[in-house]
Design a protein around this nucleic acid. Structure first.
Length: 708
DNA sequence: GTAGGGTTAG
């Protein structure tokens, strides 16, 4: 009676309603205890499982000599992460068998102690003289794969052959993943050939293995072989294949696979919907991602983050931030990836206020310590033009990876801080962080700003090769920019002719831009013609061309281009600038009259322009007019959006505050020279982010040194 | 009484 009440007390302690689940009288039959423990572990009800253990101890029924009951207990504790307790039960058991060992090994494997498993394995054979079965071998093989113990894994392969277990599905699959981890895809193919019988798990792990090692066509081959052999493919197979489409941004293939999946009648699950959203997002078809998001109801953090990321990747930054509010309303707890996407969305908008709020939040939740979050913060502060905050963050970061270094290097470069960028690069080398493809893009950009031609070529031709990196189009384009900026236009052109790559619009535009800045009309005209052949409607080319005409005072040329644009009805994307003041974003369109304070803003611009006139400002009408519609009324003064934004910010912020403006296009010559002088007369720092880079105006000069 | 494959950031 006393015993029963003890029993009840223990159970009541655990949960009020669980009492009915346990028949305390029958608990003392081992069979019942075993059955109960298994059920509780299966349900993940570890709390009650532990209570049952307590009960067995209290009632002196924890028979140390009952193998099966002990095995259940070992399993219980290793499943809920209490390895030490599991180990104690194991060590105290007077008897144990191959199952006991197998359970304990699985426990160590799943709790991240893969290398301990091989030790246990040796003990099992040498101390208990037990020969491994299929359970033990598959667990040990998995441990070798995940612990990187490739040599031991191969020894186990011999044992597998000895035991005649190569045909066993679990063992075979564990072997295959061992060879996959070892990057021995030939070994994988050999096992596939020599051992027949593939189940869905085999297909999927081989598929993943090929994908991870870049064997794309082999992966697709496995997939189609699977379909051909009547195995429909489950959600795991499709997740992998969608991952492939995403990686290669192959929308066509992605859609085909999606159709195939729909035909097979496979239902969406949270993994699958994440993978499909990821695919559509990376392939640039946000509508597809949104459709999937709406078709599935049980989203978790990952799938929410996937739809946020898809929006981010397609530049729907605001949408991403709005969706996050919905996510929070549904009580989904964000993780480090979520915060990274959100911060990067803020970076896209240069929404410093929102970014700062998120910064505070990640500090509070502890997510700030994740590299992905740190990198996103750096990106956010950089893109919002706050270099000081970036420097502070970078030096305080505990974990840095290649991306961190790359961001700092290219960030400094985009701000025109070439010296600092190269300095960081040297630190990166000293820290033995391996530079990659992206690193050198930033490095070459920095060389460009500093005009260090020889150094740039050294990195391109020697350092990259020494590291084993093949220079690509982006690097070569940087070199064109490097030579162009230094005024070595013929060298730049020769470099383009002699380098065997397919040059894209970006590269030609870099050269054209250099021609424009250095007033090389002849070459500029040729390059522009070439660009217009590639894309006859490219407004950017027309603008640069017209600029060049204006510089050499060929006004007929300017007029001709304007006429051409009108005839072909080619319209420039409207100029748009925005600035954030006390957490509110104010957007300005060129020639905007919609703003409630238009009159005051225009008055302010007029005053500013009058103030800088004595400093030598002459309105550059040629440059201004490109933004203006031809039907502009006579006598009406129009202003570019960045002038409006700067004027407004000057009106609304304290007299020492730096001003941050973001613009969707390239800043024009006129605004550039005006802003330089405005920074001088107002004694303000004005940072403008345009499509290409940052311009930091201070005391009459700009960080781009008038080349952009 | 035990074991295998999957999703989100740059």
């Amino acid at each position: 009676m006393l015993l029963t009440s003890n029993v009840h007390r223990v159970l009541l302690h655990v949960s009020a309603f669980s009492l009915s689940q346990v028949n305390s009288q029958r608990l003392f039959s081992v069979e019942y205890a075993v059955k109960l423990l298994k059920k509780l572990v299966d349900d993940g009800n570890f709390k009650l499982g532990k209570a049952v253990h307590a009960l067995l101890v209290v009632s002196s029924h924890a028979s140390e000599d009952h193998i099966i009951q002990n095995n259940c207990l070992i399993n219980l504790y290793s499943r809920c992460g209490q390895l030490a307790v599991a180990r104690r039960v194991f060590d105290r058991s007077s008897q144990r068998n191959v199952v006991s060992w197998s359970i304990l090994m699985a426990g160590y494997l799943h709790n991240g102690y893969a290398w301990e498993v091989t030790k246990l394995f040796k003990d099992m054979i040498s101390v208990d003289k037990i020969f491994p079965n299929e359970y033990v071998l598959s667990t040990v093989l998995s441990s070798c794969s995940s612990g990187g113990l490739l040599h031991e894994g191969r020894q186990c392969h011999t044992l597998v052959l000895k035991a005649g277990l190569v045909f066993h599905q679990y063992v075979k699959n564990a072997l295959l993943s061992l060879y996959t981890v070892s990057s021995d895809m030939e070994g994988v193919l050999e096992i596939l050939k020599s051992v027949p019988g593939l189940d869905i798990i085999t297909y999927n792990s081989v598929l993943k293995g090929f994908l991870d090692h870049g064997y794309t066509s082999e992966a697709l081959d496995v997939f189609s072989r699977m379909l051909a052999h009547g195995s429909a493919g489950d959600s795991v197979s499709y997740v992998n294949i969608f991952g492939l489409c995403a990686r290669f941004k192959d929308l066509k293939l992605g859609k085909q696979v999606h159709c195939r999946m729909l035909k097979s009648g496979l239902q969406l699950d949270v993994f699958l919907s994440s993978a499909i959203m990821d695919m559509y997002g990376k392939c640039g078809e946000i509508s597809g991602a949104r459709y999937i998001f709406d078709s599935y109801a049980n989203h978790n953090v990952v799938s929410w983050t996937a739809i946020l990321a898809a929006n981010f990747q397609n530049e729907c930054f605001e949408e991403a931030l709005k969706l996050f509010l919905r996510m929070e309303l549904q009580d989904v707890i964000p993780n480090e990836y979520t915060f990274a996407v959100l911060l990067n969305s803020c970076a896209g908008l240069s929404a410093l206020g929102c970014g700062k709020t998120l910064h505070a939040r990640v500090e509070q939740t502890g997510h700030g310590a994740f590299v992905v979050v740190g990198n996103a913060l750096i990106n956010m502060y950089f893109r919002s033009g706050h270099i000081e905050a970036t420097r502070a963050l970078f030096s305080s970061m505990i974990c840095r990876d290649t991306v961190t270094w790359n961001m700092i290097i290219s960030g400094f470069s985009h701000h025109g801080l070439g010296e600092e960028a190269l300095d960081v690069f040297q630190h990166m080398l000293a820290a033995e962080e391996q530079p990659n493809y992206v690193t050198f893009v930033g490095v070459l950009l920095a060389c460009g700003h500093l005009g260090r031609i020889e150094e740039g070529f050294y990195y391109l031709q020697h350092l990259m090769r020494d590291i084993g990196l093949e220079p690509g189009l982006e690097h070569y384009t940087c070199v064109v920019g490097l030579l162009g900026k230094a005024g070595k236009l013929d060298e730049a052109e020769n470099f383009m002719r002699s380098t065997p790559v397919t040059w894209d619009v970006v590269a030609w535009r870099t050269l054209l831009n250099a021609c424009n800045v250095h007033c090389n009309y002849g070459l500029g005209k040729r390059v522009a013609d070439h660009l217009l052949q590639l894309n006859p409607n490219d407004v950017g080319t027309y603008i640069l061309l017209s600029n060049m005409h204006a510089k050499v005072k060929r006004w007929d040329g300017v007029a001709k281009i304007r006429k051409l644009l009108r005839e072909r009805n080619i319209k420039k994307e409207p100029g748009l600038s925005w600035t954030e003041i006390r957490n509110e974003t104010h957007v300005f369109v060129s020639d905007d009259t919609q703003h409630p304070e238009t009159a005051q803003i225009h008055e302010k611009v007029r005053k500013l322009l009058a103030d800088i006139k004595p400093l030598g400002y002459v309105p550059d009408t040629a440059s201004v007019l490109h933004d203006v519609e031809q039907e502009q009324q006579e006598g009406y003064l129009s202003y570019h959006s960045e002038k409006l934004a700067v004027a407004y910010a000057l009106m609304k912020t304290p007299s020492q505050a730096p001003i941050h403006v973001i613009k969707n296009l390239r800043i024009c010559d006129d605004c550039h020279s005006a802003l330089k002088l405005i920074s001088k007369v107002t004694m303000r720092m004005i940072v403008v982010r345009d499509v290409n880079r940052f311009h930091s105006f201070q005391d009459g000069s700009c960080s781009c040194a008038d080349y952009w």
